[in-house]
Design a protein around this nucleic acid. Structure first.
Lengths: 182, 182
DNA sequence: AGGCTCATGTAACCGGTTACATGATTAT
DNA sequence: ATAATCATGTAACCGGTTACATGAGCCT
């Protein structure tokens, strides 16, 4: 139940945004923290309008399709603040990984197959680590949307992702070692 | 779409199990890797019976409610094997964390509030790390269900959870440091 | 007396995924 | 020519959450 609040967060930072803009920013900033579908973003915006958390107005354009700009309301701001302060932490540490489930049930496979599995996981982590580094620069150079105030906190989130991937790589190396000495 | 396959995995290891048993084992083994609701487990078992991945028979009991024991079929075994070998890795690295979203949008709060947030996150990680260590022993001493073949792989999954929590704690310390020197 | 364990489910709802649908403009 | 960008949505479906419902037996 947090896509709504993520959208509110960006609307609060940027004033007004369209579903299209919000989709782009979610894709670039929250791809790994909170993956979202475009259609779902449009859907949540509509449902938040019903809740009076946002209001919309249509901007007519020539040569381009018209667009619908959403703005956060006072109720929306209250809701966002509430969400930001209430944080019970209990459900924050679930990993939810198909990959780990597969590892768990890999006892019947040949060890070599399982080593390959872990190795391809490691490769994926390494690749993503590279993408993440490039992504950082793109965001630094972006002038469209400014997050001066928020820069420290977005950096902190990027740190987490980086640390996570590095941990995964170390775990993979350790695990491959274990399996090879079996 | 993997709760079904997790259930198949346990049925494959244990021969026959009831929804009740599967719920217990999911709760204890996959609490953080793949959290599942009891009602959803019953639901998936029914839907898998329609798919002919499992078959069921009712065991009549006196003094206790009757129970329905599910057994994996040949089709189920084929499906499980297929799932275990096909692993595309692309979606494996999404963190999906409400907590990180909140951190991202914390720019408007006082730094002290945010330090508190990270500190309570750290505490939660530490507590869970303790629970995990105790959980390990419980599973080692469990004689009801044997996973001799699988022990190595379940250990590997526990390693991951442990490493993850340790990484979280280090990240929290680093982050608290950053925020204090602001 | 109160709560836990055993054991199975239904029902309402919500959030998310995938596919389908349109159509002008601009860059390669 | 072809593909990408801009821009919005609908529809069908699926998986997951929460709450409701039952009822015997056993433990403290």
């Amino acid at each position: 139940m947090s896509l709504k609040h993520g959208l509110l967060g960006f609307l609060d930072l940027n004033g007004s945004m369209t579903g299209y803009d919000l989709n782009k920013i979610f894709m670039s900033m929250f791809k790994y923290v909170w993956p979202a579908q475009r259609s779902q973003i449009y859907h949540e915006l509509k449902s938040m309008e019903k809740l009076d958390w946002v209001s919309s107005n249509i901007i007519f354009q020539t040569g381009k399709p018209n667009k619908k700009e959403y703005t956060i309301t006072e109720e929306g701001k209250t809701e966002l603040k509430k969400w930001l302060t209430e944080c019970d932490m209990r459900d924050q540490l679930k990993v939810k990984s198909v990959f780990l489930m597969k590892v768990f049930f890999s006892g019947r496979n040949h060890i070599s197959e399982n080593i390959n599995l872990i190795q391809s996981f490691k490769k994926e982590c390494k690749d993503l680590l590279e993408v993440l580094k490039v992504g950082d620069e793109v965001i630094d150079n972006s002038s469209e949307i400014e997050f001066e105030k928020n820069k420290v906190y977005s950096d902190i989130v990027y740190d987490f992702e980086e640390d996570y991937l590095k941990m995964c790589i170390e775990w993979a190396d350790k695990t491959i070692g274990k399996l090879e000495n079996k």
